[in-house]
């Protein structure tokens, strides 16, 4: 069974961010049969802050990071704060291991008080996940308060979920840099750590640059 991981950065309980996250997750799982794991970034807030000061992840944060790394697809949802994603949402992705999102299908979504911030998807979230080398689903979903009592949101949810499901299943799934290295017989691996054999590293320096 494929794995769908949802990162929801809502702060209140219940939160409309989580509500949107759940609807996107259900719609995606309905098409892929994927198992869903939800990460509430709020619950990791203190460990994330400590990760910045300490340099290492606490137990719950490490488990969340591993879930993200192992996911076949990701749904990320943030409330809009000061014309962008929330600081806590960004902080979660700041402390992820480098390359964790390489080639991974990601559906971006956001919630806000009014429709005036809907372009946050394309001005803030899309560049962030492009930088992280994720494959961002063409349709992002923005839900303002008014959308919860209006037409249109379910269709956008379905369209985005369909695109994510296609990326998760389809041939469009890009190999991540890591996968490429796993196929390289020259790479030395002990437990979770790997590197190129020393002779090879030394040789690389002898080649004229």
């Amino acid at each position: 069974m494929s794995k769908l991981v949802v990162v929801s950065a809502g702060l209140s309980v219940p939160s409309s961010t989580r509500l949107l996250a759940d609807r996107l997750a259900q719609a995606t799982a309905g098409r892929t049969g994927a198992g869903i794991q939800v990460i509430e970034v709020r619950d990791l807030a203190v460990e994330i802050a400590h990760n910045f000061t300490n340099g290492f992840a606490g137990r719950d944060l490490a488990a969340a990071q591993q879930a993200v790394a192992e996911a076949d697809g990701l749904i990320v949802v943030t409330p809009v704060f000061s014309a962008s994603y929330s600081g806590l949402f960004k902080a979660f992705f700041d402390v992820l291991d480098q390359g964790a999102l390489d080639g991974k299908p990601v559906l971006i979504a956001a919630t806000g008080g009014s429709a005036r911030h809907s372009l946050v998807l394309d001005h803030a979230l899309r560049p962030l996940f492009s930088y992280l080398k994720a494959v961002v689903v063409p349709t992002g979903v923005y839900a303002a308060s008014e959308d919860w009592g209006a037409e249109g949101l379910p269709e956008r949810v379905e369209r985005a979920a369909g695109q994510l499901a296609a990326l998760m299943a389809g041939p469009a799934r890009l190999p991540a840099a890591r996968t490429a290295q796993e196929d390289d017989p020259a790479v030395v691996r002990v437990g979770e750590l790997e590197t190129v054999p020393f002779e090879q590293a030394l040789q690389a320096l002898r080649r004229p640059s």
Binding site: T195, P197, F198
Partner: peptide, 23 residues
């Protein structure tokens, strides 16, 4: 950096892990 552990191993030198801030 596993690259440095690899270097130490290659030469048969010592490897020091400064674990003081790490689980």
């Amino acid at each position: 950096s596993p690259e440095i552990a690899e270097q130490a191993a290659y030469y048969g030198d010592g490897f020091f892990h400064n674990n003081i801030f790490w689980p």
